[in-house]
Design a protein around this nucleic acid. Sequence first.
DNA 1: CCTTGTGAAAACTTTCACAGCT
DNA 2: AGCTGTGAAAGTTTTCACAAGG
Lengths: 220, 220
Amino acid sequence: MKTKRKEKKIPQETIRRLALYLRGVRKLTSQGLSIISSNRITKHLNISPDQFRKDLSYFGSLGKRGVGYRLDMLIPHLEKILGVDRECRIIIVGVGKLGSALLAYPGFLNFNFRIVAAFDNDPAKIGKVIEDIKIEDISRINKIVPEFRVHLAILTVPSDSAQIVAEKLVESGIKGILNFAPVNLNLPDNILVLNVDMATELMVLTYFSNKVFDIKGFKS
Amino acid sequence: MKTKRKEKKIPQETIRRLALYLRGVRKLTSQGLSIISSNRITKHLNISPDQFRKDLSYFGSLGKRGVGYRLDMLIPHLEKILGVDRECRIIIVGVGKLGSALLAYPGFLNFNFRIVAAFDNDPAKIGKVIEDIKIEDISRINKIVPEFRVHLAILTVPSDSAQIVAEKLVESGIKGILNFAPVNLNLPDNILVLNVDMATELMVLTYFSNKVFDIKGFKS
DNA sequence: CCTTGTGAAAACTTTCACAGCT
DNA sequence: AGCTGTGAAAGTTTTCACAAGG
């Protein structure tokens, strides 16, 4: 990333970890805890307490020395930083098997993400209702995105059409795309794209598991 | 310490990019190209040519100065490094909506990943066949993993049971896990875990899209 | 002129260590 | 005594710049 701001530089991975912390501290709250140390928070997250404190310090100080962090302050703090204190409207584009599965995924609501529409170009699917969401023709993206002030799109169309559909999304005013199609999208710099590519993840696992073999002296 | 090979430190992200390169060069081959420069390869990947050459250089030199890379050598080279030159057997554990979608995902085969079994604990599902794969009872993991010499597992069970199921997978001899449950798995160090967490990705997108607003001076 | 391969510099991220507050 | 917050050190990754080869 090439942000050339004078603001102190926040590592990208810090943001990803903040999301992890939010999950973690919510779980601890539900266990009845109210004040908690960096040590305790990170115990089950495979992250060092130092890293946690450093990550938080980018956004001002919140803990009490000698004491720890108040969960009732920490949770809203993290939610505010991540922007999940307000509802974020999202759409799913491409209602194949994966798109349908994501439509039904309950975990989005925990973080204030609301799926407001789903799109496909298959006439057999358009008009059907899945999980209370009516499937719309893809040509209606331009109408619905501004109307519902949609921020983000989950893109689960076939690779062939990913680029062109992504361009439509950009045109309609979307700000970011979570792309499940295994292609690199070429879009303007101000559009954020994160790729989720299952085959790549498996390759990374394969590479490192072979490495472990080597080091341990095993044979496959 | 025990590795006999030259001990250069290879960045983790390099491996992820190699998978990207493999996708890219395969596409270029299908366009009839046979020799190609780092510039051309990375043109549509949002990666610099320098990065590409550096990444490759960790594994020895393969290109010809003044010329470029021969695709018929580059592709097998990348495949070998990533370990996708041999079949890798995988299983899917948890055949809910997401698990079923992944069972049907055709992209795994391009990289020699073969799904050999699927597991669930729901009696209503056990015995059913999806995409030519019979769904087995989760208790049979211990039998099937060694029998088919399964390397990797895709974990798509509910969060509550993810840890305990993961431990069963480790017991059975699995080497790595692609975890879709939004919890941190605590497993031995020699087991590789990669997490795919849709809500986290959306939060990262939200964070950065708000940042872009700020920088550009827009309002939401 | 091409383009690769690679040390060296620059940039970035994590870990350390300790001052300072409760 | 216990824990946070944070500069400074250590470690890691990317970018630069250029020698060397077709």
